[in-house]
């Protein structure tokens, strides 16, 4: 089981959290300007990264706030947790 450090509550068991998928997918500001392909890209297409991945988690059984976790999807090692404001946009490929 993962141990995730909520930026507000500290380290807790994974079972307190809810997974929210890839981070930083911005809703297009003008959906009507998009083609069907662009809209589908926003709705469905995912990086599905093998390696360091920026993803959203919510502390569902705690403070209920959303935050960003950087986690290696092969080793499952958590490389960092951030509030939405301070979250990096690019994944770090050298966590050391």
């Amino acid at each position: 089981m993962l141990q995730i450090t909520c930026p507000w509550c500290g380290p807790r068991d994974e079972t307190e959290f809810h997974y929210g998928g890839e981070a930083h997918i911005a809703r297009p500001s003008d959906p009507y300007a998009l083609s069907d392909e662009q809209w589908a890209d926003y709705l469905y297409m995912r990086k599905n990264t093998r390696g360091p991945h920026l993803e959203q988690w919510s502390h569902a059984a705690g403070c209920r706030r959303w935050f960003v976790v950087q986690r290696d999807t092969v080793s499952y090692q958590i490389l960092g947790t951030y509030t939405l404001a301070e979250a990096p946009r690019e994944v770090s490929h050298d966590p050391a």
Partner: peptide, 13 residues
Amino acid sequence: DSYTGYGQRGSFS
């Protein structure tokens, strides 16, 4: 498991 992963293992919960 709810999270994405390539590790061929999951959480005990």
